[in-house]
């Protein structure tokens, strides 16, 4: 039963990820809330499964010429350094605290998502 739920939640998270809406924001809370995973484990699983999916997507997008390269190295440079810091902090925090931080993060994102669904001005 547990294994069935794990696969099911994976499918749901992957589905939203495939739609380009960020699967992790669905997958991580499901794993933590319904399966009782440590917040760190949920997040780590999301990171790893993202890597596999991303390889596939990058390959497809690159073939369609959709990946821009100009300027992105600067983003990656800043990103890699802070990624180490962020991940390290996440792994040393108590799971309960990290869970609450993640909950707050989700609330903020969901509000932004509502705004995106109802854009005020029409974009050209």
């Amino acid at each position: 039963m547990m294994i069935f739920l794990q696969i099911l939640f994976g499918v749901l998270g992957g589905f939203f990820g495939g739609l380009g809406m960020g699967g992790g924001t669905i997958l991580i809370p499901m794993l933590t809330i319904f399966l009782g995973f440590d917040q760190q484990l949920s997040q780590g699983i999301n990171l790893l499964s993202f890597l596999v999916m991303a390889l596939l997507s990058i390959w497809i997008h690159a073939r369609n010429g959709l990946i821009a390269t100009k300027g992105i190295l600067w983003i990656i440079l800043g990103g890699v350094i802070f990624a180490v810091g962020g991940s390290f902090l996440a792994t040393i925090l108590p799971s309960v605290i990290l869970k609450k931080c993640f909950g707050a993060f989700l609330c903020v994102l969901s509000v932004l998502e509502f705004f995106k669904a109802f854009p005020k001005k029409k974009k050209t």
């Binding site: 739609l19 699967g23 794993l31 699983i45 596999v52």
Partner: peptide
């Protein structure tokens, strides 16, 4: 922070769901 068994099952699901989602 990561244990391997749930990683495999959830990861398998993500892969399946991801393909369906992209379509």
């Amino acid at each position: 922070a990561i244990s391997s068994l749930p990683l495999l099952t959830v990861g398998l699901g993500v892969l399946l769901g991801g393909i369906v989602g992209s379509i």
